[in-house]
Every structure is written in C-alpha cells, then in structure tokens.
Write a protein that binds this DNA or RNA. Structure first.
Lengths: 351, 351
DNA sequence: CTGAAAGCGCTAACAG
DNA sequence: CTGTTAGCGCTTTCAG
C-alpha cells in the first residue's frame, strides 16, 4: 500500500495525503478526517526510505557499545554489568522520545568501520558512543562527518587536543576523580593509613582518573604507598584476584580500593582464599555500584556511577542536536555518590 | 557524495559504479579497481534509503524486547538479568552476520504499535521478539504482515490455534518442562518429599510449563502437595519473598523449587529472615541460572537456560528467512541443564 | 486549499 | 562489457 493508493481511495492527490501525514496546517479538517480514515482502515504506514530520500529524517539514533578489550572474553559486553544499564536507559529514553535505536557492538578495529558506515550510509540521524577505549582516530573521523554524536566517558582533553570540530560533538562524563577521592578519604577518615589500590586499564579515561585521585589523595594526607600495593587489574575480576593475592603476600594493607566493582569482587575472592575476613581483617571499597554489589554478603561499599543521569543526558542531547540541526560542543559531568555498606571497618578506637 | 560523483571521477557511468558496489561479475578487473580507488579515496558509502527504495534490503533486523509487566518497575528490562544475555547474543550474532539491529523495548500496548510500524515502514527486513507476555493479538497482526520474524519463548499452541500463516513465523523455545521436571526429580532423588513451589506468572509459556512439570512430577512420584505449598511469586523477587514467608509459617516443606532465580533469591531472603539455614534447614532450587546465581554464597543450585543457543538460532533463522525470501514455519527447542551447586542438601542417610 | 511535476540516490532492465 | 532510461515512494515547490 502506497500513498498513491490512499490518495485514490480518498479521492485526493498524493500531495494531500502527504500533507495530512506530516500534519500540515493548510488542510481543512474535513479533508484531513477523510484521508485519515482511509489511512487507518488500510493500516497504511509511509515507507521510511522514501521519506528519507525525499528529505525527512530517519528518526533513528545509533548506539555503539565499544569494548575493544573484550573481543575474546566469554562474558561479553552486556553481561559486563557496566554496559547493560547504559544500554537500557538510553534505549528507553530514545524510544520515549519517539526515536528508534540502531545498536551495534564494537569489539574490533573492523567493527569501528561499521559505525562510520552507519553515519555515511545515512542509516542514523545521530549517534551515541559508550564504552571504554575509544579509538581516537575513529572518533576524530566521526567528528569530521559533522553529524550529531555524543561520547560517554571520554577524555575531553583528547578531543580538544586534536581540534575536533566543535559543532557536532558532545561529551557526557561522570566525576570519577571526585568519586575516587571520596572513596579514599572515606577510608582515611576511618583510620586507614595502609591502603592498596587495584587500578583499571589506563588507556581509559576513568581508569586514569580513578588512579590519579588515589595517588593525589594519599599524598595530600601524607600517606606513603609502597610500590607493591598498587597493582593493575585491567578492570577484570580474575586479573584483580591474581594481583591482589600477590599484594597480600607479605606486608599487608588494612584496606583495598579497587577501581571498579568487578575487581573488588576479585579482591574479595583473594582475601577469602587467604582466610582474611571482610571487613574484620581487611576493608574493601569498589567503584561503579553494579547491581550485585548490594546483594553480596557482606554488601560491597562502593561509589555509585550516575548511569541513569548520564544516559538520559546523552539521549536527550543527540535528539536536540538532530532536531535543531545544529550542535554545539558541550560537556556534561555528573557527580558520583558514596554507597556505604558493609565491607569497610573503622580503625578508630571510639567507633 | 553520490554515486554520480564517483562515476564522474572514475570516468564511468553510475550503472558501472553500482555494479562494482554490488559485486557484479561482468565488470573487468581493471574497471573495478579504478572505481574502487575513487570510492575509497572519497570514503563513499551508498545511501541506504536510496538502495532500499531501488529494491535492496535494509540489512537490518528488529529486536523487540517485550515485558508488559515491567512498565512501572524501577529495574526495567535489561537489568532484569533475564534479558541482557539474550540481547547481547542476538546483537552480536546479527552484527557478525553483517546486519544492523534496530532495538525497541515494549512495555505497553502502545509500544506494540511501534513494532508493527517498524515492519510496515520497511525499517527492518525481519524481526525477533523476545520476552514474556506477548500480546497474542499483536503477534497475529505481525504474522499477517508475512515478513520474516521469530518469537523466542512462545507457546506454539497459541500460534497454531489461530491458524497463523505458517510461511513467516518461527518459534525458538527452551525445554522448560523437561528442565523443571529434572529439578523436581533431583530433589526427590535426594530424599525430599515435602516440596514447595513458587510459581511464575501463568500468562507466560515458561510460567505454565514449569508449574505443570512440578505438578506432574510430584504426582508421578506419588507425592502430595498441600495447597499452601504452591504460591505465585509472579517471577518477582519481592513477591516471592512475601509468599514464601507465609508458606513457611506452619507446616514447612524441606525444599522449595522456585520457577526462576529471582524468586529463588526472594525465597532465600525469607528463609534467612526466619533464621533457617540454607541448605541445612531447607533446600532451594531455582531456574534460569542468572549470572549472580553462581556468585552467591551458598551458590544457587538451578537449571540453566540455553540462552546462547536460543539467541543464536533465532538470529541465524531470521537472517535465513530474509535472504531466502521464503520462510517456513519452524520450531526449535533447546535443552536445559541442571547446575548442581550448594543450596540443596540430601536427606538420604548414607550421603 | 489542492493538484501537477520535479527530484531525492540508487538499481535494474534494456539496448548497444 | 557499459551507458541510457525508467522507476522505487515520498515530499515539496509551484501554479492555479
């Protein structure tokens, strides 16, 4: 069924059908009603490709979930517990705004081509890129396209450094530095002075920020950190487990700050295996507040990422850029929140 | 940049450009190379809408995640731990087959319109519908469209009953009856005779199958089940918690079979609150094997859903239907697996 | 207020 | 082997 068929049945021209479909003002109520009736009776829906070709928008946003490190990881992206909530909120928000979402995962360099293609082939009006380890070259290539897109969790410095066109790029971040500093201060305030750190991948903005916050905050408080108390868990539970086991071999800290919850779980695995009670013998604090964190026993003390706010902001922003046709370079940063639960013990006597 | 621009630059006609893009045989290697060079130099990608309008496929599959019950649930679809793995695998598989995925969540009756529209507007070549509580009317409406689509976890009887056109519908299920029977037999074989059941929503295929398997298996073994030992938890943790607390008030079973893991968690909450040790005082067995199940302590004994196999089969099948142009009515059913962990105790003396 | 006609970018017969 | 031509289904001037 095409618009011409509707036109015939309603006794008008295709132009008029188009006018009522697109809600133009200059159609008398009577004509509009007549046409609408035929449209509904025949379950007519205009062909998207034809509309797009004739100048309308696709009404679709691309959502690219990138995780180059996970290519050979059996627990891929969504199970990764970090991504699922982002995907959920973004899809939901976009759907509610009347947009379809084209989702694509990016594990390899090759997959990155797909995101560029999605733009170039005009499959999408705009895009959102979420995930760690963005490929700078590709991000720049996309920015050159001058199409609306927003990056979640991206180092703004990178963007500015490469003089990206500021018209069509937006970045949404969380205040990871602030959150990590908060976590470390929390431990210090409760009497911990011997604190170990399990770092995440440093080719990630959040990986770097969280680590820097740890280093700075310890230094600010005049606390020394022996080299063997800073290990790299790559954001992976198993790796953290191995590293922490080594960390705890001799000279042992009283608390461990893991740069994400997955690694906090790995640290807990290691502690348990060594017969250390949590938080009795050692305190653990994580970052992200993944769903499982609150369900553990003991429940994990951690820093909550403002995933909902970030996703919503990203979704609303692409849509705005698409509809106004003009984007503006913008940055949004949402605060984290300390979730005090059961894995940290105070070393202060009066508590 | 349009195909005509490429044609000019390469000194050929648009037809020839089209021929190399679509990999037609009758283009001499030399011409092909010349055209390809220009295409690459200019990062040209053909406009999808134009190709579709001219008769090519969209190369996009719609993925509709429906959960009508979750509309007002703060933990929506993906967090629901049941959906995330499906979405992940389907998107991954489809992407690898060279398809884009249009994702849409369906919480309400209205959202269902969107899936029909996606088909009618020719945004997608085919679709996959995953999730509980499909709206029969809508499913039938979609089947009438005669476009390739596959349903995951759907009652085939419903389809047949309504004489759906068999050309373009496929169903992928898990053997829930078999799995649930296995769980119950496992308990019985370990000496349990007093078994309670927490049912899921019965407007769901899996809800019905799991319940029926419980009832049948108990009966086959000549085991009586008092009415108050069969409660309905609606697949929701909190609801299960409440119902189980009531169930355990007086005459208490030695084991509880919950129709999904979320409810098994709720049952565990209730047991703990009543001071019952698991599995010391009461055994618990779930269904689904959600990621958290193995990470709990004690780790939850449960039945693993063949999510990966189901998702892969669904993805591959839509693509086949799209590419062959003709679908065939088909049904696939994948077996479940018992995951023996720590929440069940044997009542047999010699163990 | 409404119809006729041009055109969006591509593919596919049809000639040559 | 390659160019010319006619649409695909819609929106949008431009007349009337």
């Amino acid at each position: 069924m095409r618009s011409e068929d509707i036109a015939k049945l309603a006794g008008v021209s295709r132009s008029t059908v188009s006018r009522v479909i697109n809600n133009y003002a200059n159609v008398p109520e009577k004509t509009r009603a007549k046409v609408m009736k035929v449209i509904e009776e025949n379950h007519y829906e205009p062909n998207t490709s034809a509309r797009v070709l004739a100048g309308k928008g696709m009404n679709t946003i691309g959502l690219f979930v990138v995780s180059t490190a996970e290519l050979h990881n059996p627990n891929r992206i969504y199970q990764n517990s970090y991504f699922a909530p982002f995907v959920e909120t973004i899809v939901d928000t976009l759907n509610r705004l009347g947009y379809y979402v084209l989702i694509h995962t990016v594990y390899s360099e090759d997959d990155f081509l797909k995101v560029k293609q999605a733009f170039l082939q005009k499959r999408i009006d705009g895009g959102i890129i979420v995930g760690t380890e963005k490929n700078d070259g590709m991000v720049r290539a996309i920015a050159k396209l001058k199409l609306p897109f927003v990056l979640i969790d991206y180092d703004i410095a990178e963007l500015l450094e490469h003089r990206l066109d500021k018209e069509y790029a937006a970045v949404v971040n969380s205040k990871d530095y602030e959150g990590a500093a908060m976590a470390v201060r929390y431990l210090i305030e409760h009497g911990h002075e011997r604190i170990g750190f399990v770092s995440g991948r440093l080719n990630t903005l959040s990986g770097r920020e969280r680590r820097q916050a740890f280093v700075d905050t310890m230094q600010e408080h005049g606390l020394k950190v022996p080299e063997e108390w800073v290990v790299n868990g790559l954001f992976i539970r198993q790796k953290a487990y191995e590293e922490v086991k080594r960390m705890l071999e001799n000279n042992r800290p009283t608390a461990i700050f893991a740069a994400n919850d997955e690694m906090a779980l790995g640290a807990m695995d290691a502690c348990r295996e060594l017969g250390l009670r949590i938080p009795g013998d050692i305190s653990i604090i994580g970052f992200d507040d993944i769903p499982i964190a609150s369900q553990l026993s003991p429940a994990l003390t951690t820093v909550r990422l403002p995933i909902y706010e970030m996703s919503q902001a990203a979704a609303q922003h692409v849509v705005e850029m698409c509809e106004q046709g003009s984007g503006s370079f913008s940055t949004m940063s949402f605060p984290t929140r300390l979730m005090v639960r059961e894995t940290c013990k105070s070393l202060k006597l009066n508590e």
